[in-house]
Design a protein around this nucleic acid. Structure first.
Lengths: 338, 338
DNA sequence: TCTGGCACTCTTCGTGCCTGAGTGCCAAGT
DNA sequence: ACTTGGCACTCAGGCACGAAGAGTGCCAGA
């Protein structure tokens, strides 16, 4: 177990390194933090910390930098979440309040988060899995051609073209529309399949084929569109990554373009509260020198999606976590209002 | 006026520089291109070209690199558009054919273009200005609350919430929906305002307020959503920018995040065919070391939106132009089919 | 257990030097 | 009037060397 002071030393190292981006030595530490011991003592502590794998030296005769394990300890035990200042809070609220539709909310959130944390922001669109159906609309575009429009309670709209096996009459369509809506409106997506299963039975045999097609498409949309979309922003902040970043930045940009990777990243964070994944804790190769701070947000009590930031492992964790949490709360509020 | 050979020298310089990314000297030129003259002669030509501002030296005793003006001349006079190989064409077609909806088409196009050109791709969503209305749907969510859904012929869907001043009955709503659609379906957005102007007169005085609200929202949507959206991809290719890119890449990333900037960039290209803007020809500061190749695309004869790529001024212009043009054609076809 | 001192190790920087690529110019050749 | 070969000049890049500085590890004493 590490003594109190050694933890204090680790904290100091992390803080200094995050600030200066340079390996920190024993002397500088004693000067800048008022540890009441001499550099020599700190050296001993550092040796112990290195032994345990919390810090490392880039080369002999250089200062120490925290390892992933060191950051992990820092985040878990040593750092709190730094609350935002009240001007910041006001700014968030003002900035988000002007949003007119869902795209706009998400867009503003991304920009806000990127600006606040000076890192890359990722915001997942409110998930359809946990949403409920607000309305299903069927439009006849041509005798055997329909458009299905699905509207969710989070304000999201999905549309699909449907080619029916046989023409379908306007009255049948109206009937189908009415029955469909009376069954599924207000229901969760997961409930829908069982609710519509026996619908075709209410119709003439002639129309059943078409109706099956419509229902199939609807269910498909529900499932397929659970592959969630997301928006990212603030990639320009990647340039603040470090002096050596040409090598680092490329795989990160590549990873960011793979929505699948990002979705997995956000999805893996099971913790209902905030999740911090540091360096190699991220499965993805290209993100091994980045940390991801993510949190769920939602319109009600339940989280419907995630948002977060991606930055260098050397990041200001308390500040970042504070910003992420605050933004998530406000977005939740905004969504609940609309 | 420049002699034939001098133009040939310029072409050779551009080609070599694009290939090697290094200043090219007189000797290398005579070797790699079979100009039938000596290095000394080429030197004279280079001096003349430099005098005229087509090429420059990074420092004395280095080779020459093309200036923006040099690239301009190259693009205008010396380079053709390099058609794609037929395997490439097939690949494009295959890749685009699987698309299921508009988002998907645009997403695939961006990825395709980025991969093909190894540069940053930008694709504008089909513009609403030139589109026609396919359907307008009105959904009663609550007595005085409606949702307006607008569907365009390009497959785009926009929705808006409407709070009416007074409750509106289901029959009135159905009536309004029917009248609205019979007037505007198939019409261009620009025609819509005059077509719906007198609609309220057909209804009871009680409902007119609500109907006015609905129409106002519709018109607003038509106008507002003419602010066009776009998608970008392939930003990881920015890392191939050059050895010194830390300085270069940052403003570019920033510019790319400002959709406004990009839209202006695409919008400024008035040429119905392909437009190439080189270096400082782009107004935006951060893009002064990049070139933008853009072209309109559309489902019919008319262009409904633009797509293009952003890359270093030192890019393979013929190849890039070929790829951009080809992709635009295929996307046009895909859109026309759906 | 802490502290001061000391020897040691490396990186970093600045200097000087050399090499090679590339140029400009000139005088001669076609 | 061009083209060509020759020649002197310039300058970036690489390499070696040395000095400076930061930081460490370890040991002996408080």
């Amino acid at each position: 177990m590490l003594s109190e002071r050694r933890l204090e030393v680790l904290r100091a190292i992390v803080q200094d390194y995050v600030g200066t981006e340079e390996p920190v030595g024993s002397k500088a530490l004693t000067e800048r933090h008022n540890l009441k011991v001499s550099p020599a003592t700190v050296r001993n502590d550092m040796a112990a910390l290195e032994e345990e794998g919390y810090i490392a030296q880039p080369h002999t005769s250089a200062g120490r930098i925290p390892t992933d394990k060191g950051y992990r300890l820092f985040v878990d035990k040593l750092a709190g979440v730094k609350p935002l200042s009240s001007p910041e809070r006001r700014a968030i609220q003002n900035f988000l309040e002007g949003a007119v539709d869902l795209d706009d909310v998400v867009g503003r959130t991304v920009r806000l988060l990127a600006q606040l944390t000076r890192q890359v922001a990722v915001v997942q669109y409110p998930s359809l899995t946990r949403s409920t159906v607000r309305h299903v609309e069927l439009l006849g575009l041509a005798p055997a051609r329909l458009m299905l429009v699905l509207i969710t309670d989070t304000g999201r709209v999905e549309q699909r073209m449907i080619d029916c096996p046989a023409p379908i009459g306007e009255t049948v369509l109206a009937d189908l529309r009415a029955r469909l809506n009376s069954r599924v409106v207000g229901q969760r997506f997961t409930e829908v399949p069982s609710l519509v299963q026996d619908l075709p039975e209410a119709f003439d045999a002639d129309d059943r084929g078409s109706i099956q097609t419509v229902l199939a498409t609807l269910l498909e949309t529900l499932v397929e569109e659970t592959e969630e979309r997301l928006m990212i922003g603030g990639t320009a902040n990647l340039t603040r990554f470090g002096h050596d970043f040409p090598l680092t930045i490329r795989p990160v940009l590549e990873a960011l373009e793979e929505q699948v990777v990002l979705l997995k990243l956000l999805g893996e964070a099971k913790d209902p509260g905030m999740t911090v994944r540091i360096g190699h804790e991220n499965q993805h190769e290209g993100l091994s020198s980045t940390s991801v701070v993510s949190v769920g947000y939602g319109s009600g009590d339940e989280a419907v999606a995630k948002l977060g930031v991606v930055g260098p492992t050397r990041m200001d964790y308390p500040g970042t976590m504070g910003a992420v949490r605050a933004v998530a709360r406000y977005v939740g509020q905004i969504l609940a209002e609309s």
